[in-house]
Computed example of a mutant assay.
Amino acid sequence: MNKTNKVYIAGHRGMVGSAILRNLQAESFDNIITRTSSQLDLRDSAQVAEFFKTEKPEYVFLAAAKVGGIIANNTYRADFLYENLMIQNNVIHQAYVNKVSKLMFLGSSCIYPKLAPQPLKEEYLLTGELEPTNEPYAIAKIAGIKMCDAYRDQYGCNFVSVMPTNLYGPNDNYDLNNSHVLPALLRKFIVAKQNGDEKVTIWGTGMPKREFLHSDDLAEACVFLMNNYNEPGLVNIGMGDDVSILDLAKLVKEIVGFDGEIITDTTKPDGTPRKLMDVSKLSNMGWKAKTSLEEGIQKVYDEIKYNDWN
């Protein structure tokens, strides 16, 4: 990408899209196109067709998606499948129709089988059954990967796919009913400290292990791959190490400065036992994450610690 190229970021107000936008702006890209969902409904094929025909972007980051945590994924199964399929079908197809130079599709680590060997290698895709609670979302994302490859095979489109691990950072979702685990923990500990509570309850046993990447590191990796990766298949983006949910809770407790007790609620679901990305493919290309988990959580805490959630 050159700094004068017209770049469209789909989903620029979400955590991923906003991080990519910040990264490009910091690098002096001055021809970035964005649309809010009220300005452009990506589920509407006619609106998307008109947008691409009018704007003619040269590069596209497809970071728009309907996202949520375990409860949201499991409750709104039809919505997660339908809306994500519509968004990516419309954007990918119009990128082909309007001769976009390159498109990057962002997926999720939940595309991998529930019981796949760890760490998760790119070739483990479609080798086993998915985690049932987020299967509709995962199936939509798998369809997006395969769609990019199919358009590459049939039409020669330079469409690439990347799979981020669990993310956190600015513009995260802190709604306790449909957020992911790290923002949920941050909110719980901040509120508990504000209220002088004696304990914080975390979901499940605390034993599952998860990997976390700051969204600014993800954005840097995405821009790096947009400039350096032009192959079918997908590339994992992650830290390459993980932490148990209980240890994560202890780290958040320490950063927030909460003095009470951590209680595990084993009536709540654990989800997948472990999700660690194998990032050797990306590392071998010359990119590694810079932000440690402790440093990243501290940055986020400093941004949100005065939020009033009571």
Rank of each mutant, 00 (worst) to 15 (best):
V100H: 06
A192Y: 10
M226G: 08
M15A: 09
Q194N: 11
K3G: 12
Y112D: 03
M15Y: 10
G260N: 11
A116Y: 13
M147H: 10
L40H: 07
V235Q: 01
A184T: 11
D302L: 08
D247I: 15
L167P: 09
A19W: 08
K66M: 15
W309D: 03
M163K: 06
A10E: 00
E83C: 09
Y59T: 10
L182A: 12
D153L: 03
Y8E: 09
I304K: 06
R152H: 07
K253E: 11
V162A: 01
Q25F: 13
G144F: 01
P132D: 02
G233W: 07
N2M: 03
E27D: 04
A49G: 05
S283Q: 14
S37F: 08
C148F: 10
V256F: 09
N310E: 07
V16E: 05
Y8T: 09
Y96P: 11
K193N: 13
Q194M: 11
I304W: 03
G296P: 07
V191E: 04
L115M: 08
G68K: 09
K188H: 11
I142S: 08
G260T: 15
A219D: 02
V60H: 06
L40D: 04
N166A: 12
L218N: 05
S179K: 14
A143K: 04
K250C: 11
A249R: 14
L176W: 07
V256K: 06
N90C: 03
Y306E: 07
P117A: 04
D247E: 13
I245A: 02
S280H: 04
K6N: 13
N228A: 11
F224I: 10
E303C: 02
F29T: 12
F189D: 06
D270N: 13
A65I: 11
V191G: 08
L103H: 12
G14S: 03
T291M: 06
K188G: 03
P136T: 00
Q88M: 13
N23E: 05
F105E: 01
P57I: 00
V235E: 01
P183L: 00
L167T: 13
G169W: 08
K299P: 01
N98G: 04
L103A: 04
K56W: 01
C110L: 10
A143P: 09
Y155T: 10
N2F: 08
A249K: 10
Q118S: 03
V100I: 03
G286S: 10
M285A: 09
I33T: 09
D247N: 15
G17I: 05
G204D: 05
S292H: 11
L282R: 12
Y137T: 14
E58D: 06
